[in-house]
């Protein structure tokens, strides 16, 4: 599809009235926001809020059922595979579990995007792999298999792979999921350092409040498929929206049971049988 404004000063990502369905069920109900050049936007939300779907849509892994997702002037909701490939070459993604290829060493994992998309000499690629691994604190781990790494090291290795092509846009799915607070803090620190070094735009999806407020330039709160707040740290902290307060103050969901629904749920199968 056509291009909006190529390059220039506009936002890197611009999402307009985005709707995503899984089958019949709509998970994102028309969300819209921008990610500015060089900023770190943290998407915060509880389980099942749709934050992960949002991230997957930004990567082009889910096709929206409505709305537009402009990344660097291309609407990826309508883009051809070729256009999508071009965007993805400059997009680094760190998946929740790392998603390192288990049959390859850490070094081969980092080298893969370079082997696929560049015509660099093997010796050059080897050097680049060492540089990237050194940047994430995994120097001399290139010959390890992913299975031999701890959770935090896997995240670092995945980050090295995401950085292999010198991306200008980095997506990060749950940087601190499954890590102890010290290791998680290390990953946060790494994100801050890399942001300085690469001047990338970064989108992070997380439910960790502390980590979110540490790394974010702006935060976006998503709840049941709707954006309930977007703004910088202070704006979010001083928000009076009850759902935002509930999330920030970690108040559990009140146990209101709709009695009629509950009875219907209990008797549903009985009625079906008659």
């Amino acid at each position: 599809m056509g291009t909006k404004q190529a390059g220039g000063e506009g936002p890197v990502i611009s999402v307009v009235d985005l709707r995503v369905n899984y089958g019949e069920r709509e998970v994102l109900h028309g969300v819209g926001f921008d990610v500015l050049r060089g900023e770190t936007l943290v998407v915060l939300g509880g389980s099942g809020s749709g934050k992960r779907t949002l991230l997957r849509t930004l990567m082009g892994l889910e096709k929206p059922s409505g709305g537009e997702v402009w990344i660097k002037g291309v609407n990826i909701a309508r883009a051809s595979d070729l256009e999508l490939d071009e965007i993805r070459k400059k997009m680094g993604v760190s998946f929740q579990g790392g998603a390192l290829f288990g049959s390859m060493t850490v070094g081969e994992n980092v080298a893969l995007p370079l082997l696929e998309h560049t015509r660099l000499e093997n010796s050059t690629i080897e050097i680049m792999v060492r540089i990237k691994l050194e940047q994430v604190g995994l120097a001399s781990f290139e010959d390890y298999m992913p299975a031999e790494l701890s959770g935090g090291m896997k995240k670092r290795a995945a980050l090295a792979r995401a950085l292999a092509m010198d991306p200008d846009l980095l997506m990060f799915d749950e940087p601190s999921a499954g890590l102890d607070p010290i290791i998680a803090a290390g990953i946060d620190q790494l994100i801050l350092e890399l942001k300085k070094a690469y001047s990338m735009s970064i989108v992070v999806v997380t439910h960790e409040l502390a980590s979110a407020f540490l790394i974010a330039d702006r935060l976006l709160l998503i709840d049941r498929g709707n954006i309930i707040a977007i703004g910088n740290r202070d704006e979010i902290k001083s928000s009076t929206n009850p759902r935002v307060r509930q999330f920030l103050d970690r108040v559990p969901e009140p146990q209101v049971e709709d009695e009629l629904n509950y009875l219907q749920m209990l008797t549903r199968n009985l009625r079906a049988r008659n």
Binding site: K89, V93, L100, G102
Partner: peptide, 17 residues
Amino acid sequence: GTMKVTEEVDALEIMGV
């Protein structure tokens, strides 16, 4: 199937492979 579950297939796609 394992690669699908661990998001490795997604990772390939993201790398433009």
